[in-house]
Design a protein around this nucleic acid. Structure first.
Length: 484
RNA sequence: GGCCCGUUCGUCUAUCGGUUAGGACACCAGGUUUUCAACCUGGUAAGAGGGGUUCGACUCCCCUACGGGCUGCCA
């Protein structure tokens, strides 16, 4: 078996099974994993996983000034948290620079590209003048058809010898047939004068070498697709299927930026959303399968397809995410919720749950996770099992423990001594006591809640009694009845 | 400036020439209720504007408006 981990990626086109789907996510490591990038990754993942294909990861770190290892780590951990597993090792685009240069030289050799000796200053001057006169700023290099014998001994870039007439057509799976006139596209630089590749070249070479069959990415790259398509053609390579998906906008409809608040997936983790809910929400944002709103990964991978992706940008709506989160908690098993709760604690810098605390939370989990909208709520509701006597009621809860309430608690406590410890009996006894005072349950539940949880927010008082058990319940009631 | 993309309830969307334009979230009203919630019933709410094409347009075409993207030896 060939060790794929240690050998560099083959530079020639890998032999792919016919019809095999290979997608990729190719972020620049300049920060955290953006929520929009996360959705792009999710779409690629869903598409590949739904077709038995591969989902690859490539880090576009060719911009040395802006790329950092920390950012790469953040992106990997963001994807991992989201549950988007990629196949093989993440590939560094920067490390493939020699291969990019090799292709540029092949283009040169076959006459598909040429050396351009124009300096950046010259080109900038041209553009400025063109702008000032309102002319097109497309640069037409005088070196395109120059006799190599006339080449000076000076730095040069390698430019693609792009067609000057006709059209470049992109058959996009989302945007449809998009036509660019070739006279609107200039000869792009493929290899810089320092010998490093431009983004345009690097992307094409990498996608080709990685065997990528479907490029699903943000529609800010739609224009680039035309130019990249020209590179594919110049090398005689098959052009992958493009699918340019609309970007996500903020709640005001503007491009997502810092002022919109949460941008990184890690922010969403810290807000207490479980990954499954984020996946569901993000998948439904810009894509739909009829009226289906709530679904799991299996359904999503089965249903997902490029044709159902919308063409308009969509806005983030946290209320809807909240709603989906509650639905997901309801179908997640308790152990899984607990496990992710621990990760949430770690992400927010809180202390992890001890073994006994975990066990207590797990026992109460059915009540804690019911309709919860985030892990913070689960924790808040779970306070009654995490705390221990003496229960110190918070300010609001203390108000429920006035002298009248305390006397009722004192009346109730002995009656709970020997009853069967089940919900029906507990409800009956508490109901009788309340009725004896001409009160409804609504009048004495707050005191019970304060006594048992020390809070005004908790699961139902009966559920708490059941989870706490007789001894602990009686101890807390007695303590509160005594006046704390 | 040039080129490209987009525009259905507040939001996410269904519709793929013929529908009282549907669903979900949110919101409002009423009900229920031991807290936060949840739940039940009902309700408000949409095809940017203007021209075409067609027996018939949300659906096809054009123009305008608005929004977005690209226009680098950034990615």
């Amino acid at each position: 078996m060939v060790s794929e981990r240690l050998t560099p990626m083959p530079v020639s086109m890998p032999a792919q099974l016919p019809g095999a789907v290979i997608t990729r996510f190719a972020p620049s490591p300049t920060g955290f994993l953006h929520i929009g990038g996360a959705r792009t990754a999710l779409f690629n993942w869903l598409y590949a996983r739904g077709r038995g294909g591969k989902f690859l990861l490539r880090i576009e770190d060719t911009d040395r000034a802006r790329s950092t290892p920390e950012a790469t780590a953040a992106i990997l951990s963001g994807l991992t948290w989201l549950g988007l597993d990629w196949d093989g090792e993440a590939i560094s685009q920067f490390e493939r620079a020699p291969r990019h240069a090799e292709v540029a030289n092949q283009m040169l050799a076959k006459g598909a590209a040429y050396k351009c000796f124009a300096s950046q200053d010259q080109i900038e001057a041209f553009r400025e003048a063109a702008r000032a006169e309102g002319r097109s700023t497309l640069y037409h290099s005088p070196w395109r058809d120059a006799d190599p014998a006339s080449h000076p001994d000076a730095p040069f870039v390698i430019r693609l010898k792009a067609p000057q007439t006709g059209e470049t057509v992109i058959d996009d799976a989302v945007q449809g047939r998009v036509i660019f006139r070739n006279d609107q596209l200039d000869d792009m630089v493929c290899l810089r004068s320092d010998g490093t590749p431009t983004y345009m070249l690097a992307v094409v070479v990498d996608d080709h070498d990685m065997g990528v069959t479907h490029i699903i990415r943000g529609d800010d790259h739609l224009n680039n697709a035309a130019r990249q398509s020209q590179i594919y053609h110049s090398m005689g390579w098959p052009v992958p299927q493009f699918a340019h998906i609309p970007l996500i906008h903020g709640e005001d409809g503007k491009k997502l930026s810092k002022r919109h608040g949460a941008l990184g997936v890690e922010d969403y983790q810290r807000m207490g959303y479980p990954a499954a809910a984020i996946r569901n929400y993000l998948a439904r944002l810009g894509w739909s399968h009829g009226d289906d709103e709530f679904f799991n990964d299996a359904q999503a991978t089965e249903w997902f397809d490029l044709g159902e992706i919308g063409r308009a940008p969509s806005r983030l709506d946290l209320k809807k995410l909240d709603h989906l989160t509650a639905l997901h908690f309801s179908v997640m098993d308790d152990a899984a919720v607990l496990h992710e709760l621990q990760a949430y604690l770690a992400a927010t810098g809180a202390d992890p749950l001890s073994a006994p605390q975990s066990e207590a939370i797990l026992r109460a989990m059915p009540q804690l996770k019911d309709k919860a909208r985030n892990f913070g709520q689960i924790l808040e509701r779970g306070h009654f099992v995490l705390t221990s006597r003496p229960i110190l009621p918070d300010e609001k809860a203390a108000k429920a423990l006035d002298s009248v309430s305390r006397s009722i608690l004192n009346e109730l406590t002995p009656q709970l001594q020997n009853v069967s410890w089940n919900r029906e009996r507990l409800e009956a006894i508490v109901g009788e006591i309340a009725a004896g005072h001409g009160l409804g349950l609504g009048k004495i539940a707050p005191a019970l809640r304060a006594a048992l949880a020390g809070r005004t927010v908790s699961p139902s008082v009966f559920d708490m009694m059941l989870v706490l058990g007789r001894d602990e319940t009686l101890a807390r009631l007695a303590e509160a009845g005594a006046g704390g």
